[in-house]
Design a binder for these strands. Structure first.
Lengths: 211, 211
DNA sequence: TGTTTGACACCTAGGTGCTAACAT
DNA sequence: ATGTTAGCACCTAGGTGTCAAACA
């Protein structure tokens, strides 16, 4: 499943800097993702815009991504940039891996929660985040995004190819090469054994020398 | 750096099953590795034995491997097999990655520590494990091993090649193949372009059919 | 028709023993 | 002479977009 940010962010991963915690207090930090509205969307090419295309699909089980550095002291949290790059999304409503479940073609808002340890007794990926005095929740409207299963917009594709290390294979310099071609490039001067030199070899070599 | 177990264990990784904890209490579980004696060893081929070869090198900074599932409840610890397969060793006395530092050619005993949370204020990879009522330490004499930088014993080599998934490339079926040969095997029927079929191709093909 | 899925080649990241060169 | 190191090919494990086929 892929994500198309509409107002940017979410890729690169959402990252936050935290201040104002009690350095000696213990905290969880967590993220969940809630629907922005009750609509389903479709992408209209000629206007390059998302348009309402009916009502939202039925709600899915709420999931919470508990940041893997949890539990940690306020001191520890404040000393680092907290990144959510390990958060995983799925459109499989039966997911049992604790991933965050979303509908495709819907608009979502990520939320960051800072939860005092002494306040929360049983934080779990499959339970809603508690609310109250010991919990602070943050919304960043610029991180709203629309989910897709295939990219709707070539600029998003290029952004992710250019920025995501794992998509390096699709960057321009690596394009249009089959597996074999890439390999033979490495062994540029290798020739198969038990072969005799033929006319083609000389012309090839001469061309390479001339370049 | 490699490890040669003398009485077996340590590879596969040391794994323990824990019982008798208070299910609702929080615990750390940790491992450290202490010298068995004050000696340095060498391996004598003709007798296939480790022999004393002088006194031990000067002591190195003590390090502790805190199991990554720490902190967890007694209930959580007892419900799983606790594996130490992520523990890393080094012979670099200046290591600043928190790895466990050992001398080569010395004999060592791994120890497992179960530490009640309310007992330990500041557990750290670079501080010795505290001792007292809230800490239980376990030695398994069959896990004593001797450190090496190159294998001294072909049986150990074979054991590790056979059992460690990451050494699969050295198993018999994959041996004696260069990188290119392995690749060409995959593209068994591929022939370089712009080449004409020669006599050698026919004899090769006939041999393959005959086998 | 639009959307969704699964196989695929291509990457990152890092754990293996092998080997030749180096150190002591 | 023996012990150690660094580069290497070979793996595991898993994150990318692409593409063709399946889907609804």
């Amino acid at each position: 499943m892929m994500i198309t940010p509409v107002f940017l962010r979410m890729f690169p991963a959402m990252r936050v800097k935290i201040t104002g915690l009690d350095p000696h207090q213990q905290y969880y930090i967590a993220m969940d993702i809630v629907p922005v509205d009750n609509k389903r969307y479709r992408y209209v090419y000629h206007s390059s815009k998302w348009m309402v295309a009916g009502n939202a699909d039925s709600p899915v089980p709420p999931r919470v991504y508990i940041h893997p550095d949890s539990l940690a002291s306020g001191d520890t949290w404040m000393r680092q940039v907290v990144s959510f790059d390990k958060l995983k999304l799925t459109n499989n409503e039966l997911d049992d891996q604790g991933h965050i479940i979303l509908h495709s073609m819907h608009k979502y808002q990520p939320r960051v929660h800072v939860i005092r340890k002494d306040f929360s007794s049983d934080l779990s990926p499959t339970k809603p985040v508690p609310s109250g005095d010991g919990v602070k929740t943050f919304n960043f409207p610029e991180t709203v995004f629309t989910t897709v299963t295939a990219y709707q917009n070539q600029q998003i594709t290029r952004l992710k190819i250019d920025r995501n290390p794992f998509a390096k294979g699709f960057r321009d310099s690596g394009r249009n090469r089959t597996g074999l071609e890439a390999i033979m490039e490495t062994y540029a001067f290798w020739r198969p054994p038990v072969r005799t030199l033929t006319f083609e070899d000389f012309t090839t070599m001469q061309k390479q020398q001339g370049e």
